[in-house]
Simulated assay, not measured.
Amino acid sequence: MATVPKLDDIDRRILRELRRDGRLSNARLAEQVGLSATPCWNRVRALEESGVIEGYAALLNQKALGLPDTVLIEVTLDRHDDDMLDRFGEALAELPEVLEAHLLTGEYDYLIKVAVAGTEGYEEFLRHKLYKLPGLRHSHSTFVLRTLKREPSVAP
């Protein structure tokens, strides 16, 4: 990744518009931020090459995909050496239900966000996937009742 540039107001406007709609055409984006097409395209490319823009993705509806429920799972490992952290993290990353996984400080080692289909899907995930991962000692789970805010990235 290249050096992260100092962002000016135009860069921030570009990022806000792309954050809102990553499928904007360059012409439409240029119009919305007050640039002509070529300088806008050059700025977007520079933001991509520097790593400020990491990529583009479609946001999928969990419910429409048959996984309407979200569970937050706090996990404690039985060991904390590099090998165990690497093995657990790699195995966790392979599970398609896992939306996010964070290595933490504090009482728990990981916070995992998982998409499931109700309590049956949750039990299936626990018994046949999570509990089979190397090094897991303890987990504590909480079902999400409602999501109040969901953003694909931080606002520029």
Rank of each mutant, 00 (worst) to 15 (best):
T70V: 07
H138A: 08
E100W: 00
G121S: 05
E123I: 13
R137L: 10
G55W: 04
S153W: 08
F125I: 00
R146E: 13
D11M: 02
T76P: 09
D109M: 10
V33M: 08
D83W: 12
V33G: 12
L148R: 12
E90H: 03
T76I: 13
R79S: 12
L130R: 00
V98W: 03
E17V: 06
A46H: 09
G66S: 05
R12G: 10
D78A: 13
Y108H: 12
D81L: 06
L130P: 02
L130H: 03
L47I: 08
G55R: 03
L47P: 10
C40N: 12
T76V: 14
L47G: 04
S36W: 10
S50H: 09
L148F: 12
A93P: 07
D69K: 01
A27E: 09
S50Y: 11
D82R: 10
T147A: 00
L77E: 05
V44R: 09
D11I: 10
L65T: 06
E17A: 09
K113M: 11
V154A: 12
V33H: 06
L7Y: 06
L130G: 05
L99I: 13
K149S: 15
R146Q: 14
L103S: 14
R20H: 15
E151I: 07
D109R: 09
G135P: 01
G66Q: 05
S50R: 02
A115W: 07
L104E: 07
Y122G: 00
D109Y: 03
T119Y: 02
A27P: 10
A2R: 08
P156N: 01
A37Y: 14
G89P: 08
A115Q: 07
L136K: 01
S153D: 07
A155D: 15
R137D: 14
Y122T: 12
L92M: 05
S50N: 12
